[in-house]
Design a protein around this nucleic acid. Structure first.
Lengths: 336, 336
DNA sequence: ATGAAAGCGCTAACAC
DNA sequence: GTGTTAGCGCTTTCAT
C-alpha cells in the first residue's frame, strides 16, 4: 500500500504550517481567503484526505454509532435498521451492527465503547451484551432504545402503544364474532410481549371472555415458532377460531402450518400478525396485521440520538408513534 | 464521562515504564516473569483496557472489515452476512455494513478506507460506491468478492456454479415434461444474472427448445418484481407452464401473484426459486429451489479475507461451493 | 530485560 | 491571521 498524503504534505505544498492547513480545512473562516485557496488547491493536488482515526482521537468522536439488534435475520429489524442507517448517513454517521445473540462479542463492544469508537448507541432489544445499568451510564456514550423497553435503564424510547394496538386487534376479532381467540406470543421475558399480551387479555376481559392459559403459546419470533404454536393450539380439545401473533414472521409460520393441516385461512381460522413487513402482502392470503411504522421507528430513534450527540439533554421516556390495524385477507368471521 | 485508565497509570502503579507495559501486554515473552506479573496485576487493578483507536493507529489495523451489500433487505444477503459476521467475530474482527444503494455514503466509505479504519472488505455486489479498479487496488485494503463477479477486478471470489445450477433446474423442469419454460431474471447488467440466464438458455437448447425472448423478464430481486414478472409472463399469448426465478424472493412474489390470478401452483404452473432462504419452507406450496450454501459463502469469503490479512497472497479466482436442487412442492408435471 | 525518547497525524492552546 | 509547540495513548527503535 502506497502511503497516503498527510497534512504535512499539504502544508509543505502550500507553504504554510500544518496548523493553518487544519484551520483552513476545519474552520475556513479563521483563515484569510488567499491562504484558504492555496491550502485547498494543495490539498486536492496531493489528494489529501484527513485521517479520521486521528481526528476522532483528537476530537473525541468517531461519527460511528452502534446498533444492538436482537436478530439481524428478522425482516422487521431490517426495516428499522434501514431507518436508522439512512438517517445516520444523512448526518454523516456510520452504523456498526451488533447482533446481540453473539456471545463472544461482549469484549469487542466494550472495547469499542471504551475506546470511544462509537459516539452513541441504538438498542433494539433489552438483552445487552454489556452492562448498561443506570450507575455506569455516565461512562457510556448516549443511548436510545427503540421498539423494546428497559425501564430500569431510563432511556429515551421510541415505540408504538403495543397494548392498545393489541387490544384493537383482538377487539376486531371479537367484532367478527370470534370467541375462542388464541395468542402466539413473543418470549415471556420481553417487555414487548408483556404489553402485547396485556392488550390481548384486556380486550378479552372487556368482551367478557375468560382467559384460557392454554391459548397462550410462547415463541421466539421465528417462522418455526409460529408453525409449532399453531400445531399446539389446533390440537387443543377446543381449538381456537382465531390466532393473534406477536410478529408477522410467526404469523407466516402459523399460516403455513395451518395450510399443511388442511385448514382454510380465514374460513376455518383467522390469523393476525404484527409489524407489517413487506412479505405480508405476498402471503396467501395476504396477512391482516398490526402495522408498525418500522422505518420511522428507526429514523426517530436515530434523530433522538443525534440530538443527544449535539449536546441536548436526553428526553427520558417514550416517543410514541402511531400504529394501525391493517385488514387484509387472513381474517374473517368464524364458521357458525 | 469519567476518564479511562491509561497505560501511564499502569506503568506508575507497576513502577515500570510505559514501554515495558506495552511489551508485557503485547509480547509477554520479551519481559521477565516477575515484571510481567507486576504489570498484569497493575493492569487489572486499575481496570486498564487498551485504547484501540490509538493501537490501530500505531499498528495500522482496525480489526474492522467493511461489507458492501447491494440490499440489506434481501433475506439471502442476511444469511451471507451472518456467515461473514460470525466468522469475523470468531477472529476478533468487527463488521461494518455498507448498503451500496445509498448514494451519499461514497465519501464516508472512502474516508474509512483511506483512513485505514477498515482492514479489508467483502464485496457482495459489483456495484461499488467507490473506484476499486485494478490500478488503484494497491492503495486499497484487501478485498474478496462473494456471490457476484467482477472479473475486471481480479479478486478472490466465493460462489457456486450458477450456470450449472440453473442448467440443472431447467433440465429438471424439462424432465417433468415442461416445454414452455420462462425465466424471471435478475438485473440484466449483473454477471450473476447472466450466468443463470446462460444455464437456462443452454438447458433449453440441449433439449431442442427454441429461446423465446418474451419468456425473459428482468426484475430487481424484489417480491414486487416477481409479482410483476408473473403477470407479464402469464398474459402472453402462449403463457409458460413453468417459471424459473433468479431468487427466492422473486419466486415468492411470483407465487403470490399466480394465486391472485387463480392459478394452482404447481398444477397450472411450476415455479422454481434460487437461494433457499428460510422462508421457502413456509410458502404454500413450499418452494422448489436451487439451494445455495448462503452461510458458507459468507464464511468462506471471510476466511479468504482473513488469510490475506494475515499476509498470505490473494488467490485470485474462484472458490466454488456446492449447490443443489431442492425439490419441494412448487413444481410438478404440466397439465396435458 | 528495561527505560528514554521519538513519533504516528492531527488539533488546540498560546504566542506573535 | 498565522506559526510554534505541546500533546492524544500507544508502539518501537535505540540505548543501556
Amino acid at each position: 500500500m502506497i502511503s497516503i498524503a498527510t497534512m504535512k504534505d499539504v502544508a509543505q505544498m502550500a507553504g504554510v504550517s500544518t496548523a493553518t492547513v487544519s484551520r483552513a480545512l476545519m474552520n475556513p473562516e479563521k483563515v484569510s481567503a488567499p491562504t484558504r485557496l492555496k491550502v485547498e488547491q494543495a490539498a486536492t493536488s496531493v489528494g489529501y484526505s484527513p485521517h479520521s482515526l486521528v481526528r476522532n482521537l483528537k476530537r473525541n468522536e468517531s461519527h460511528t454509532i452502534l446498533v444492538i439488534v436482537p436478530n439481524i435475520s428478522d425482516p422487521f429489524f431490517v426495516e428499522v435498521i434501514k431507518g436508522i442507517e439512512e438517517t445516520a448517513a444523512g448526518h454523516g454517521y456510520l452504523v456498526l451492527l451488533g447482533d446481540s445473540t453473539q456471545q463472544n462479542q461482549e469484549k469487542s463492544f466494550l472495547n469499542l465503547i471504551l475506546a470511544k469508537q462509537v459516539d452513541g448507541m441504538v438498542l433494539l432489544g433489552s438483552n445487552l451484551p454489556f452492562d448498561a445499568s443506570k450507575d455506569v451510564q455516565k461512562n457510556l456514550p448516549p443511548m436510545v432504545m427503540a421498539n423494546e423497553f428497559a425501564s430500569e435503564l431510563e432511556l429515551p424510547t421510541v415505540h408504538i402503544d403495543n397494548l392498545t394496538a393489541s387490544f384493537n386487534a383482538i377487539h376486531y376479532l371479537h367484532q367478527l364474532g370470534h370467541q375462542r381467540i388464541a395468542c402466539i406470543c413473543g418470549p415471556e421475558n420481553m417487555h414487548l410481549s408483556q404489553y402485547r399480551k396485556q392488550g390481548y387479555i384486556q380486550a378479552l376481559q372487556r368482551s367478557g371472555i375468560a382467559i384460557e392459559e392454554s391459548y397462550l403459546f410462547y415463541g421466539d419470533f421465528s417462522y418455526e415458532a409460529g408453525a409449532k404454536g399453531l400445531s399446539a393450539l389446533m390440537s387443543l380439545p377446543q381449538p381456537p377460531t382465531a390466532i393473534f401473533c406477536h410478529s408477522d414472521v410467526m404469523a407466516i409460520g402459523a399460516l403455513s402450518q395451518a395450510k399443511k393441516l388442511g385448514l382454510n385461512v380465514p374460513l376455518d381460522l383467522s390469523i393476525i400478525g404484527f409489524d407489517n413487513i413487506t412479505l405480508t402482502q405476498y402471503s396467501d392470503p395476504p396477512l391482516t396485521t398490526v402495522a408498525q411504522p418500522c422505518y420511522q421507528i428507526g429514523q426517530q430513534a436515530m434523530l433522538l440520538l443525534l440530538k443527544q450527540l449535539q449536546g441536548q439533554a436526553a428526553q427520558i421516556g417514550s416517543l410514541l408513534l402511531e400504529s394501525e390495524l391493517l385488514i387484509r385477507g387472513s381474517t374473517a368471521a368464524p364458521r357458525s
